[in-house]
Amino acid sequence: MIIGSIKDGIVIDHIPAGRAMELYKYLNLEHADCEVAIIKNAQSKKLGRKDVLKINEILDINYELLGYIAPDITVNIIRDGQKAQKLHPGLPETITDMIKCKNPRCITTTEQELPQIFKLTDKENGVYRCLYCDTIASR
């Protein structure tokens, strides 16, 4: 599949090599009805090797999640076969209900209806901490 073959869709580019499946899983793409292509270990001038995800439909993407998993990725929105929009999600300030706090003493372990919220506390190193107990998020 090449970009030109997508009429309306999304190309998630510059995914660190080997992490496309992680993104695929987090984005729930296994439940999507549209065509999805996973390109692994593609040549990249910027990264050496990269993964690419091509989705043949403009889905409602959670950019917060994308930024958390791979802050350097590029998201290209394709409309009528043309690149309509290019996005760099970056690190989100907060992430909600994507990962769980691993601290056994955290209130979220006993009250599981609470939203799992993590906040960015160290932008330079991409460190997130649990909003409730301050435990560092582990991927």
Binding site: R105, I107, T110, E111, Y132, C133, D134, T135
Partner: peptide, 27 residues
Amino acid sequence: RHPKEGAPRAAAMAASVPIINAGDGGH
């Protein structure tokens, strides 16, 4: 005061009056 870490934060998100953390576990 609550033995679980972060319980007062969860309380503050739900309460309509001010919450003071009087100690949440070892946090």
